[in-house]
Design a protein around this nucleic acid. Sequence first.
DNA 1: CTGTTAGCGCTTTCAT
DNA 2: ATGAAAGCGCTAACAG
Lengths: 351, 351
Amino acid sequence: MRPTVHDIAETAGVSLATVDRVLNDRPGVRGVTKAKVEAAIVSLGYVRDVAAANLAKSRVYPLVFILPEGDNPFMRGLEAEVRRAGLHSPAERTRLSVATVPAFDAGALVKAIDAAIMEDVSGIAAVVVDAPEVSAAIARAHAAGIPFVTLVSDLANSGRDHFVGVDNIAAGRTAGSLMGRFLGERPGAVAVLAGSMRVRDHRERLDGFHAAMPVTRTVLPVLEGQDDPDLSFSLISDCLAANPTLAGIYNLGAGNRGLIKALSARGRADLCVIAHELTAETRAALETGLVDAVLNQDAGHEVRSAIRVLRAKADGLPVISAQERIRLDIFIKDNLPAGPDEDEQPGAAGN
Amino acid sequence: MRPTVHDIAETAGVSLATVDRVLNDRPGVRGVTKAKVEAAIVSLGYVRDVAAANLAKSRVYPLVFILPEGDNPFMRGLEAEVRRAGLHSPAERTRLSVATVPAFDAGALVKAIDAAIMEDVSGIAAVVVDAPEVSAAIARAHAAGIPFVTLVSDLANSGRDHFVGVDNIAAGRTAGSLMGRFLGERPGAVAVLAGSMRVRDHRERLDGFHAAMPVTRTVLPVLEGQDDPDLSFSLISDCLAANPTLAGIYNLGAGNRGLIKALSARGRADLCVIAHELTAETRAALETGLVDAVLNQDAGHEVRSAIRVLRAKADGLPVISAQERIRLDIFIKDNLPAGPDEDEQPGAAGN
DNA sequence: CTGTTAGCGCTTTCAT
DNA sequence: ATGAAAGCGCTAACAG
């Protein structure tokens, strides 16, 4: 049997309460006593039983996720994952809630953050836009002692406690590299569709893409579709019309529906298309060959990571960063995971 | 607060012990009583607190992993992940151990399985070879009531309770598809290096690869390197010498060291090379451009999945299959995860 | 500053 | 067939 608080208390010659104080470094223990207890802890090789601890402090952690509203499938997927995690949340002593705000709207985002601060939640996870007001709101959360993690798109110098998402520069580079190889010697320029240059993840992906593109290949000026299907559709349609020799398209944002509609309208099967986020749409497009590769960040992993990090921060525990790194998945037609149909059961820990 | 066993006892008008008997359907409860309790359970929407349950029954589950010995880096990686999981195992009330046996040796494997059965472990996870004696040993484990999962390579009709690993046919298809695109119109045959056609995962990958290859592309007869670096080296060296116009190599087995040595000896940068399993060697080869893509199954995910499944089976709980699916990762130079150097901290749950 | 005591939600003897 | 009571390992009042 592994050592318990009782064993520590005994070998250190103190009471349980004192051991507990040292363990959770709470005030009210003399230096010598503390030293004795700590000695006992290391000599016995004690490791705390987290499950028992959680059981004893029957505290719950209200966490709020702030996400862009609208029909962006990736964001709705994130929301679904939060709800899914919510089913299991009582076991982890968390209570999850979701607030949605208009996309790319700094003011609304700030309001939502302040509302969460008012409610005195134990942690906030948000998909943020890059604006000074937002950084200020994050600073207020910090000042109120509320852990804050950025989700999907980072805001590094805002004082957020942690970023949960992929390395977006690497994502752009991956797209560029893949596009380069798929195109080979085939001539023609490539187009890039983004949502908005006002979110950092889109800017970073663009940078990475440019960096990985051979200099001999022309990259057209970025099209900003505001992650809106209709706008994206017309931008891509116009682009296809204006550039009959176009060789490829990289969509680094969320306007996949518009993109795919435009592609199927033109029926240009010779185009190399790379998009982000595996959704029902991109999956179907991958299967029909309209899209060649999809880069993905797993929404379930991100949500669970955000929860773990917020909980850790909430009780002052360290975050094991290696464990919280979010990988960039590459999907092609052949390594698609089983579809949502076969996948209905709420997952918990992930693989 | 969500309902507890006390609430059930109260609304059903019985004692805690009876509630527990019904909950764990243990004998010794009259039909009527049972019905009353069950009614209370559903009406209150009770869900058992697993952590508390585990705390109370301070039972431990001894689990054994049986892996091939030798310097196969992927297998050593698996072993390392088992040890890593072992650090956290007390919290999950499991005790992990590893047994290694000579690779591709059915007799040794059978001995190890029988030894585990004798020790009366709570579960066995093994990388198995495809042989009737092995199936028989698995059947003995089953008869002894010991859950058995196959790891990495399956043995479907053996009575194993579960398979933890990737879809190897899809893996082969992915390799073929990627190779086809990377090669484009470039002429030349492709070679395939395997470990042994006696393990099912290698056969399945080969099948998938052939299926995804355009008929216009010649695939040379498979080379069996026994996952041995020296043998793999000479097979590939000879092959390169004999086929000066070779366009690509797919290594579906573990002989990466030999392969890479042969490649760097020849200095043929124009070759498209796809291999399996992200190890220090394949990572380096990816970075230097000697290898173009690496298909990977995450050893950490597999180990944790095996543990979850064995535990679930051990206490008769259902396995959430959607949660236990192991994905096939594609890595290219640009989406390599942070290296082992930055990654030293033992991870627990994974993303 | 330190100790005593009563739980958290569930399981498990041991009685009845 | 059912119940009472004592824990599992830890935390949290409340006393001293």
